[in-house]
Structures are given as C-alpha cells and as structure tokens.
C-alpha cells in the first residue's frame, strides 16, 4: 500500500480506523484521502485497506 507517496507493507487485513490507531494518528486532527477521494471520519471503521490503496494523510497541529 502507498502512504504519503511511500510504499509500505500492510501486515494484515485491517480497517482504516485500525491502521490509523496503529500508526498513532490522532484521528480528530487529520484529513485522509484514499485513492484521491476524501475519506469521511464516520467511514474509517468501514473502510478495509488493500495493497492497491493509496493513502494521503495530512496532520494538523494547533496555532493560528
């Protein structure tokens, strides 16, 4: 699978929610694009990742 342009190995079948938790992302503070389409937060539990997927994750830190 591709994560932010880098190829990474998907260890096992998992949902986007499980993947993000394992990667220690705070899901409240990220925007996730899967195969060019924004993944709505409510769908993270229902999206199963495959080797063909390409994820772009944008993380936001506070301040403005």
């Amino acid at each position: 699978m591709k994560l932010n342009g880098q190829i990474i190995a998907l260890e096992q079948e998992q949902t986007l929610a499980a993947f993000l938790a394992a990667q220690q992302y705070d899901i409240r503070c990220i925007a996730v694009e899967r195969n060019g389409v924004i993944a709505p937060k409510a769908e993270y539990e229902n999206i199963w990742l495959t080797d063909e997927d390409s994820l772009e994750i944008v993380r936001f830190v506070g301040g403005g």
């Binding site: 409240r28 503070c29 990220i30 925007a31 944008v58 936001f60 506070g62 403005g64």
Partner: peptide, 11 residues
Amino acid sequence: DKPDAKAMLVS
C-alpha cells in the same frame, strides 16, 4: 487555531 477544527474544515 485548534487542530481538530482545521481537520474538520479541510475534510
């Protein structure tokens, strides 16, 4: 200012 508000608006 808040990172969750940023992520919500962008998404």
